[in-house]
């Protein structure tokens, strides 16, 4: 369970408030979308919810653990073991093959060999087995995003955070990626938090957090 308590985020000096006192609860296994217009603060909120960033005031609690109070080691270990990220730009390491990219999180804890079979299986599930030995530069955008999803799932994370994962894909590929994410949430029970500005995808969620200039209006 993720609890957001009075989250405020300000940038700059003099401080400019981007997020205004947001509070919410995301249950385990839930699929929540964060939508709103460009610049409304979606990404900012997602980074804070996902422990990549911290609120100016307020708290984010993962099962009662405050992210702002975690040590540097702990927060990185937490990310490796429990959190999967998917970004709009696929952010694969260009010098690594598809398989090596998927195996990055296990590499962080020196358990590459244990996870090799699972990595191959995930690539198969994502229908991108054929790019296992290819470099990102030899893959299409859709293939890259699916490899990135496989990487996000390799450690069987409890939480999956996606920031406009379809934003850089054509609609056919976008659809495929959305279906994959949805089935992950359904079949594996992974908590899914999806940022999108596309109405259609936002509506696929069980619950929708709609942001207008950093203020929340919940629908769904």
């Amino acid at each position: 369970m993720i609890i957001g308590k009075n989250i405020v985020k300000e940038f700059g000096d003099p401080p400019h408030r981007i997020l205004h006192d947001l509070s919410f609860v995301i249950q385990d296994g839930e699929f929540v979308s964060i939508s709103g217009r460009s610049g409304s603060g979606k990404s900012t909120l997602l980074y804070i919810i996902s422990s990549l960033d911290f609120p100016s005031s307020g708290q984010v609690l993962f099962d009662d653990e405050d992210t702002s109070l975690m040590s540097v080691e702990h927060i990185h270990e937490f990310r490796t073991n429990h959190v999967g990220f998917i970004f709009q730009f696929h952010y694969l390491l260009p010098e690594l093959t598809g398989l090596e990219n998927v195996l990055l999180p296990p590499r962080n804890i020196d358990r590459v060999d244990e996870f090799r079979d699972r990595a191959l299986e995930l690539l198969k599930t994502m229908d991108v087995s054929k790019v296992a030995d290819k470099l990102p530069s030899q893959m299409s955008g859709g293939e890259q995003q699916r490899v990135a999803i496989a990487r996000a799932l390799i450690m069987k994370p409890k939480y999956l955070f996606a920031d406009e994962p379809t934003g850089n894909l054509d609609s056919a590929n976008g659809e495929v990626v959305m279906n994959i994410l949805k089935s992950i949430n359904k079949e594996r029970g992974t908590t899914l938090c999806l940022v999108t500005h596309e109405e259609e995808y936002a509506a696929m969620a069980q619950r929708e957090i709609y942001l207008i200039d950093g203020r929340m209006s919940e629908r769904g």
Partner: peptide, 14 residues
């Protein structure tokens, strides 16, 4: 930089 960001978000500590 981008790759460093990825590594950090994956959980590679500083």
């Amino acid at each position: 930089k981008k790759e460093i960001a990825i590594l950090r978000s994956i959980g590679f500590p500083p």
